[in-house]
């Protein structure tokens, strides 16, 4: 039951229609983070469709997506995998205490040339 809820929420907040996927793999072929991921963009799409959401939520792959939108641009069916991945990540970090990066982690990672844009973006992606 819990599982169904996750699926519905992901479909709702991503706005993506995962059923349109024809499993061509173009999204994963275009993905610059492919080597870094345990589950690849087309797997996110198909596993959400199959309701295997927990596996995705437990995987570090949700933090490897760069939001570069190459998958969205190149999907011939307009499925928008990046939005699906974003939705799965939000399902995790929106939970109490589930921020991926804590403000205390940041100082050790800084260098003097890092643009504010980087810190803002990372906070958006890794915390709630």
């Amino acid at each position: 039951m819990e599982n169904r809820n996750f699926k519905e929420q992901i479909l709702r907040i991503s706005g993506a229609d995962v059923r349109k996927c024809m499993r061509c793999g173009k999204c994963s072929a275009a993905c610059p983070s492919y080597d870094e991921m345990e589950y690849h963009p087309h797997q996110f799409v198909n596993m959400v469709n199959d309701g295997k959401i927990e596996k995705l939520m437990e995987s570090k792959s949700i933090y490897k997506c760069l939001t570069c939108f190459a998958c969205v641009e190149r999907c011939p069916r307009g499925v928008e995998p990046a939005k699906v991945i974003e939705a799965v990540r939000l399902e995790v970090i929106r939970q109490q205490g589930k921020n991926y990066m804590k403000p205390d982690d940041i100082p050790a990672k800084l260098d003097e040339d890092m643009p504010g844009q980087l810190l803002m973006t990372a906070m958006r992606k890794y915390t709630k």
Binding site: K64, L66, A70, L118
Partner: peptide
Amino acid sequence: NECCGGYITLDDKNAAKKR
């Protein structure tokens, strides 16, 4: 028109380096 690695440099420097 491909990604430089973006914000992942904060979490996974090596991935950003590759990109």
